[in-house]
Design a protein around this nucleic acid. Structure first.
Lengths: 344, 344
DNA sequence: TCTCTACCTGTTATCGTTAACAGAGAGGAT
DNA sequence: ATCCTCTCTGTTAACGATAACAGGTAGAGA
């Protein structure tokens, strides 16, 4: 009883209960394979000794670690935090635990962290879709475990893929701004662009070039409200003629909007603004931020369900799931309407 | 080469390199114990076969799982997300990985999740300080592994403790509001209070009772901007005579401030407001939200460092670290002198 | 009474690694 | 030549659990 927690093994319990270790093992793994008497005897002994199953030993022998490895860019972002929560909630009832790593948006780090997590022999792997080091891609391809790429829908998934199309989302927003009357639209993005942001940007560039016949106007800034303010200051200095602005993030968009109003640049009358992500604040800063809403938690949840389904050998569903997105039109782009786009 | 990743063992590498298994093991664990020739031979064989060490087997034999278990209320909150990032960044360079669980603010769930993580025999444990199930406390007490309770400084830490005092923070804010001229202060909190919020509230109640001689005025609402708006509406209806408001969270505070202005209740002239957490938006919603800033990332980082220090047998420092907090005074509680109107 | 099946429990070998110790050579000191 | 130390590598026996199979017992049916 004064032993350290975890120092009690099946053998100790078996000795106390007067049964074999296999019987104790069964008491935990397949209780219905034991007679009632035996089961109770074993459980009482385990309880008395404070037995805690050793998942490491179990994992070694059974080759089932009961873990899912997950590498994302960062958890200090509501987006990935919600995604991770969704995964955890989906796998936890089935007895799986999450082993987490972060790459800080760097492909080298992603590879390093993922390889170190693979040493724990996870039964499934989750990572953000997009760019990976070729070595990592090769390693993952050799992996027999179910694998999900999240968030971004990629052209050639390694295995399973859950998320939405940044291309479609970018196109939808630019289209929305154009329909709301904008004729000269700028794009405000983060300094270090990753694949997901690049997709939104590429779509923007194509759209303004083809539809509005003007050269892309791109401002790079920090991913924060303050960054948005600074970005808008620059936009005003260099391109006072724009009448529409698409920001890769709501943080930036809110900052830009606050600064625009401070400068007397009226939103949405002279400048329509749209963001990305549907942060709560966007709803509350007058006149309300038009944005793209992606069901983050749902992305994680679906990923978790796909994994669990595979691991439990359930009949397989689609390997790629588009959770869609929603353009939420608010005051910052004038006409109030909300329409749903692409869902399958 | 077409084997599944992870199906290659030390034995396979040993055979190919023409050495014993132990030599291969040493090539990875203590490379300097091998001659240069042998080391290179082994590494080449490992590379060719795509060998990936099996941390599960290693952990079983060496009793060193190289993991740290962490259970927090939720990661869908910037607070804990930053804390977790801090932990991960501190332990990762030393080769430790994070196994994460969430309790959703429920002590039963906390216990359940923690016990299931303990089955992986983590070398250290991190959890949010405050209430725990007595059974969990007992289990943790028997644990020989280093343990850190974080965020809240608790009266009797189980082992190590990093965070700040919610009592002190609550007192500092009420004191600040009083010095800024408030004489009747309300408290807006979340519906489901956990220990940490209760501490801020208890301090508030003591302060207003003793210093301002009025009964506590407490409004419970949802933890969101929208919740803050609704809370303020109720406050206005029921206690239009208050001239100060302390909210347990910046989200609530921002919502309350926006709503107050909408209702023509001038901030800070007629109502001084203070929040908690220093969300970025608080800085940008005019006239700026007075708040308490806690170094979240630092809390996680210090926790990680304490753990690693212990595990690596470094001389032990303090077991309790108070990272402190900072009252950030902004426009929402600006000084009265010229502007503040004494009401009624 | 004997066989057969169903149910329950035990035995054996093994998962991949590392701790602990053993042994082989090389080189130095005596 | 002998012994000793040092460096390097190998052998053996676990770590704690489970897969696979073996055996024992009880009750049913012949």
């Amino acid at each position: 009883m004064t032993d350290a927690l975890g120092s009690v093994s099946l053998e100790d319990v078996a000795r106390r209960a007067g049964v074999s270790i296999m019987t104790v093992s069964r008491a935990f793994r397949r209780p219905d394979a034991l007679s009632e008497d035996t089961l109770e005897k074993v459980l009482r002994a385990a309880e008395a000794l404070g037995y805690l199953p050793n998942q490491i030993a179990s994992g070694l022998r059974s080759k089932r670690s009961q873990t899912v490895a997950c590498v994302i860019p960062t958890i200090s972002s509501p987006v990935y935090a919600n995604v991770v929560q969704g995964i955890a909630d989906a796998i936890s009832p089935e007895g799986y635990s999450l082993v987490l790593g972060t790459s800080n948006y760097a492909v080298d780090e992603e590879r390093r962290v993922m390889m170190s997590l693979l040493a724990y022999r996870p039964e499934a792997v989750v990572l953000a879709g997009g760019d990976h080091r070729p070595e990592l891609t090769r390693s993952l391809a050799r992996l027999k475990a179910p694998l999900v790429e999240l968030w971004e829908l990629v052209p050639k998934p390694l295995d399973m893929n859950v998320g939405f199309s940044n291309h479609a989302a970018g196109a939808a927003i630019v289209d929305h701004l154009i329909r709301m009357g904008s004729r000269r639209i700028a794009f405000m993005t983060v300094k270090v662009e990753h694949a997901r942001v690049r997709a939104r940007r590429a779509t923007y560039e194509a759209a303004v070039t083809k539809v509005l016949n003007h050269a892309p106007i791109v401002i790079a800034t920090d991913l924060s409200i303050e960054g948005g303010r600074r970005g808008l200051r620059r936009l005003r200095d260099r391109h006072p003629d724009v009448d529409g602005l698409f920001c890769t993030s709501d943080s930036i968009a809110v900052g830009a909007m606050l600064k625009a109003m401070e400068l007397g640049w009226s939103v949405p009358d002279e400048l329509a603004i749209a963001g990305f992500g549907d942060l709560e604040i966007g709803r509350h800063v007058p006149p309300g931020m038009t944005t793209v809403r992606v069901p983050e938690y749902r992305v994680g949840q679906v990923a978790g369900e796909m994994i669990v389904g595979r691991l439990l050998g359930r009949p397989e569903g689609a390997r790629t799931v588009d959770v869609g997105f929603e353009v939420v039109a608010r005051g910052s782009s004038a006409r109030a309407e909300s329409k749903r786009v692409r869902r399958r």
